[in-house]
Design a protein around this nucleic acid. Structure first.
Length: 383
DNA sequence: CGACGGGACGC
DNA sequence: CGACGGGACGC
């Protein structure tokens, strides 16, 4: 049993980075130790009586068999097939899904594994929860039935006494509802509490209740009131790329669209791709940095719509190249299918040339499709 | 009909 | 003072 699982794990991850060296001659007990050690660590830091354990709340009397697992804290590089392979060492896997960012394809660090048999699901929790992979300790627990009511149930708590433990925190919040996870942030070097933490409840209304009852209150034995609010939505923008990536970008690229774009397109300056033939007034757009996200800057960004699913970059180069200096082209594709999503972007160096390209190519028939070509509109992100 | 990415913290 | 995890519900 252990031997077979170990060989699977070693085969999968032996070549990946690990904070712990794995020697080819390791014996099965070392793996067992590793896994047990992390479990012990968890229980040493926290009281198993109170601190949330793997399954989350008991949805007692559920008729459906509990075969579906959620796996959290997966290493960034781990693929769906590697997850499937790992969990297949326990029993037959009905389905397996790694959740990825829709547009970038980056792993979001969690996934679902559904077993054929509940027995296997139980054993997967028992044997794989707490398993250390690379620099992560994965968490394996029963997935809750998916529902709207469990979303947005994560709280951010600040103003905690530095002496407060995870257990103290859970004790304080457990009256409000079922706690799924809790955490107190610590300084990585000193290991001391930073006085902030997180609590994820099972249900959003439980989180709301906690805000209503605990925000602004002073915990027993403390002197300062705590702040309890909904946590930020996890943003995928940070820590994904190595910092060194920036140095590979050209200076012009680095200047890109940084900096505030406060009064981006209001009313009369907004360019709609549907307004065929409408182009920016050169006098305005060439001199005002706030008119359009198309430019100015390192170039003029052009939006082209109605591309065929099979469209490749070289087509855009050929299409726009004759009009002048093309800096870059990009076909936007669906991550899963790798098919073009119907649009793309072209950045050209010179305003006059990009204008000519737009005027000439808007309405142009490519294949059996009539293209719509315009300056890219401003970013309509509204955080 | 619609449809607008990815890039990133210095001055 | 603020501080936002080891991106937890199907991207």
């Amino acid at each position: 049993m252990w031997l077979s699982k170990c060989s699977v794990i070693f085969g999968l991850f032996g070549s990946l980075h690990s904070d712990r060296k794995i020697h080819p001659g390791f014996d099965q007990s070392s793996w067992k130790q590793q896994i047990t050690a992390s479990t012990d660590l968890q229980s040493a830091m926290t009281d198993p009586q109170l601190v949330t354990q793997n399954g989350g709340p008991n949805h007692d009397a559920d008729m459906e068999s509990k075969t579906n697992l959620i796996v959290n804290y997966l290493p960034q590089t781990m693929t769906q097939e590697e997850i499937r392979s790992l969990f297949s060492s326990i029993g037959e896997v009905e389905s397996c899904k790694l959740i990825r960012d829709k547009t970038t394809g980056q792993s979001l660090g969690y996934g679902f594994v559904n077993y054929k048999l509940q027995d296997d699901a139980d054993r997967a929790i028992a044997q794989l929860n707490g398993l250390r992979l690379q620099n992560k300790t994965i968490k394996v627990s029963l997935a809750r039935p998916s529902s709207e009511s469990i979303k947005g149930a994560n709280l951010y708590i600040s103003g905690l006494s530095k002496t407060m433990t995870q257990l103290d925190l859970e004790t304080m919040f457990s009256p409000a509802g079922n706690i799924i996870t809790s955490r107190i942030l610590c300084d990585p070097t000193t290991g001391l509490s930073k006085g902030v933490g997180f609590i994820r409840f099972d249900q959003r209304y439980e989180a709301e209740k906690a805000i209503n009852t605990l925000n602004g209150t002073i915990p027993e034995g403390s002197t300062e009131p705590i702040t309890v609010k909904f946590a930020n939505q996890p943003s995928n923008s940070k820590n994904v790329l190595p910092v060194t990536m920036a140095s590979y970008l050209s200076p012009a690229r680095q200047r890109g669209f940084l900096g505030p774009i406060h009064h981006a397109s209001t009313g009369r300056f907004r360019f709609s791709p549907l307004d065929a033939g409408l182009v920016p007034n050169p006098l305005i757009s060439a001199t005002s940095p706030t008119i359009s996200a198309a430019g100015p800057g390192p170039g003029w960004c052009i939006f082209v719509y109605n591309l065929a699913p099979e469209t490749e970059e070289n087509v855009l180069w050929q299409l726009f190249g004759p009009f002048g200096a093309v800096q870059s082209v990009k076909v936007i594709r669906d991550f899963q299918t790798q098919k073009c999503k119907g649009f793309g972007f072209i950045t050209m160096s010179n305003y006059e040339e990009s204008l000519m390209a737009i005027q000439s190519l808007n309405g142009y028939t490519l294949g059996n499709r009539v293209l719509q070509v315009s300056f890219k509109t401003s970013n309509r992100k509204s955080p």
